[in-house]
Write a protein that binds this DNA or RNA. Structure first.
Lengths: 258, 258
DNA sequence: ACAAAAGTGTTTCTCATACACCCATGT
DNA sequence: ACATGGGTGTATGAGAAACACTTTTGT
């Protein structure tokens, strides 16, 4: 090869990381699947020297954003994502599941500089959430079915939409659900989690058929009966408890039919 | 919100785009699915002022890389990816299918600067390939089943692996295959394409069962019989020709069982 | 005539869904 | 006692795979 590619050393882009953090809260399954939003920082009137910029150019509509930070020089994406959760929402995200979603970097995304955001998806169990108070703005858990799309600033509506689609699709063939469920759970809870994230229709299935679908996983030792029943709540027989034995990267033996 | 986030305007990262371009060539299905590799540019001994860098720090092993370029200031990812194909392989990629794969930006990826690569997947039909000669190094179509993993420089092995997995997975539920097939094709070719990308086992199915699976698509007008037979080649009855009527973002009526 | 590949029809078996019935718990 | 939800077993229907057989091509 005759010519080796050269380029000036000068960096041209600013890196940011945004996180779409999902959780699953107890209660009606229609509102159970929730996403973390934080308040948009107030625009600062004018930058003073040394030249400073906001995380973004000001928005016309804004109100809510996904938690995000600008990256430090020697930081990994993963590290920056967890730092964003800590800084913007007071969430200790050391253990939570994190995967890259996509990178958003339209040249017109920010009027002042090339700001490229590497968006991530995070999954936490609601029982693991620690509520460290945060200095700037209150974090807000918003049901995915009731996202105020008009209030989302910048392109965060686009990011959130893609994140929702990704999780909805992936839940069908991968074991993501178990990152949202408590350590032990009943068949009903597993079913409700699936209904909340992907398809409400599964709530109309009989418990019999749900169980038969997971029977294969029980036989293969991926779902382990704990040997206890859940504490009774209200009327009705409490369900048998299971725990999940596998990795989040695993997949269902067959794709779920729903 | 009391504090608005500030940061110096100084960009800290260099953006690059790499493309994993796939095609499907006629012939034995085991070697049909191929990926485009190009020669690694020779390392330049020492940078002179004004300070210049290579696309990457030099590699220990290297030999082949994915086509990629550093991004211009006002360029979109999509635009840069098509430019990379033109510059590094002489491929006019204006019409080919392109989707973002993931972004690779480990801080230790390049020793001289923070180079972040937004990797893309591209799909072309082999009959649409124009072979404009390229100045630097010969482009090389390599069967996916025979990738010389050891010769891939930098983290391009990782990128390629992820790209292969993505396409393998997506082919099952989305209409990606039709971006790799010629404008008209037979059932056998459709089956062979699926076998090449995802699962050789489908070659053992009877033509009967294959046809029944696609019968639903024919009925719904997504596969349109052209009304001719393919030109006969060798012994055996030539297959009926079909063309695809739909968008690449569409999905199979049911996920393919294989 | 024969081999090879395409296409049609029928059978078999697996599995998702539906339904009928029993068990455990709180009111 | 009865309402409510969990759990077991059986029946039904759709569809994936297996198989037998016909049609079209080249040698």
């Amino acid at each position: 090869m005759a010519l080796a590619e050269r380029s000036t050393l000068t960096p041209t882009a600013i890196l940011a990381v945004d996180v779409v953090l999902f959780t699953l809260r107890p209660g009606a399954f229609e509102r159970a699947w929730q996403v973390l939003l934080v308040e948009l920082p107030d625009p600062v009137p004018a930058p003073q020297p040394p030249l400073e910029i906001l995380r973004y150019a000001q928005s016309d509509i804004g109100g809510r954003v996904l938690p995000g930070v600008l990256m430090n020089g020697d930081e990994t994406f993963d590290g920056a994502a967890r730092r964003a959760l800590a800084a913007k929402a007071g969430i200790d995200g050391q253990d939570l599941y994190l995967e890259q979603l996509a990178t958003f970097g339209s040249p017109t995304r920010d009027s002042r500089a090339r700001v490229v955001s590497v968006a991530h998806i995070g999954l936490v169990r609601s029982d693991e959430l620690t509520a460290t108070p945060v200095e700037v703005g209150a974090p807000w858990w918003c049901p995915v079915n009731a996202v105020p799309w008009d209030e989302l600033a910048y392109d965060h509506g686009t990011i959130l939409r893609e994140a929702i689609n990704r999780v909805k699709g992936k839940v069908r063939y991968a074991w993501l659900l178990f990152k949202l469920l408590p350590p032990v759970f009943t068949m009903s809870e597993l079913r409700a989690a699936y209904a909340a994230v992907r398809d409400p229709d599964v709530m109309r299935l009989s418990t019999s058929n749900v169980r038969k679908l997971f029977q294969g996983m029980i036989d293969h030792g991926m779902l382990v009966p704990v040997g206890e029943r859940a504490p009774a709540r209200g009327r009705g027989r409490p369900g048998e408890l299971f725990r999940f034995n596998g990795s989040v990267s695993g997949t269902w033996p067959r794709e779920l039919p729903w």
